[in-house]
Design a protein around this nucleic acid. Structure first.
Lengths: 225, 225
DNA sequence: AGGGCCAACCTTACCTCGTAAGGTAACCAT
DNA sequence: ATGGTTACCTTACGAGGTAAGGTTGGCCCT
């Protein structure tokens, strides 16, 4: 009687896949060597046979998401450079929404995942094909920032689950806030009312993402040689 | 004989100041409770009398840099909204350049430092005063991203000290790279030659920052009601 | 003067984590 | 069989965050 149904042997790929799954489900902080080993039905030190250390593991996880984005984006299709990039960036965003921890991870990596270079080469090709000089294309890449990877700079996290706004001091302190920050208060009021349009709620980042993207694309279009 | 010249007693402020100094000098990873305590001539557990835990410490450090930025930026001066914001954001950048670790820290915080709200209120006031609708101003704030705080989204760190590009494979692999990524190679070549203009070197981020900033400001100006 | 109080700091100890060092069992070719 | 290789495990250490409780000096009140 075979004692174990014998799980498939470990491998770098299997480890990385498990790591991504772990982080997707429980957040970056949950990714420890021991916990990951448990998920794989293995002892912690066994992971070191396939990866030198945790930094490398994190690099691998970063590489994995980047590759997933690049794969989803695919090659440029169409004529108009603006439409091509717009579609690609929005596709990247679809993938990134499934890995909300990825921006934070990428920010901590010291090396750039290999796939990024090929991806940027391809974007650059689209820009050049669209009539950009190398100089303007270069600046465009910088201006895009992380949009090719599907996220805009959201410095402050969405304050995920419960917390930020407690229901404690709703009375006078709210009034005090309104007095100290009249414009913000007015903006919130104005924007909350105008919810008949294609907005998914207060500060729907999809709309904001597209707005910023189009702002950049149109601005660059105007500067194009 | 007084055994110790008696250092001033600890306080939240002194602890935070020491933490910022530590991180400025040795990086975020060096900020441990024990090390920070040593810098303050104190035992680690003494810090817990002034701060509940490390997360709160990090929140405090984030708050400290934000406050430093806001203080440096000061109130809006001048008439033209565009000039006002431009100057303010560039001032913020000057401060941020002294704390290159700050973007990464802010990205990990769950709560938004209090000073940010007042700062954004002030920016919003400038926009409204400049003829923006609340709707457009709202989107402008999102489009600015982290620029008000002085940094653009630099997803991939500058690969600080030695490492990224080893001198190992300079011959054929470089040629292979050039073949795989013709546009990137051409761009590097083109941009390296054109170094007679006000650029501090390859990918000088000051120039890129200003370019992106102006791209956004001009784009918004055109959309203004 | 003496007793109580409390702020500020310290001592010990526990648990989690990353990982160095070395062991072991199965398999494979000679 | 025998030596080697592959894939995994056992043990152990040191760093780091922090819970629990101890110590000390100054201040106030009577």
């Amino acid at each position: 009687m075979a004692p174990k149904a014998s799980r498939p042997p470990l491998s770098r790929e299997r480890v990385l896949a498990a790591a991504v799954a772990l982080v997707d489900g429980h957040g970056l902080a949950a990714l420890t060597m021991r916990r990951l080993a448990v998920d794989l039905g293995v002892e912690a030190m066994s992971l070191y046979y396939h990866l030198p250390d945790k930094e490398t593991l994190l690099d691998g996880v970063a590489e994995t998401v980047v590759d997933e984005v690049v794969a989803a984006v695919g090659p440029p299709v169409g004529e108009d450079w603006k439409a091509v990039l717009r579609r690609q960036f929005l596709t990247a965003r679809d993938v990134m929404l499934r890995h909300p921890w990825a921006p934070g991870l990428l920010g901590t990596r010291r090396s750039v995942p290999a796939g990024v270079f090929l991806y940027y080469e391809q974007i650059l090709g689209t820009l050049i094909g669209g009539g950009f000089t190398y100089r303007l294309a270069h600046r465009a890449l910088h201006a895009f920032g992380s949009m090719p990877l599907g996220f805009a700079q959201e410095v402050f996290s969405p304050a995920t689950a419960g917390g930020s706004m407690d229901v404690e001091d709703t009375e006078e302190s709210l009034a005090a806030m309104a007095e100290a920050m009249p414009h913000l208060t007015a903006m919130v009021a104005a924007e909350l009312h105008a919810e008949t349009d294609p907005t998914l709620g207060w500060c729907d980042s999809q709309v904001e993402f597209e707005f910023t993207l189009d702002l950049l694309l149109d601005g660059l279009d105007r500067l194009r040689a």
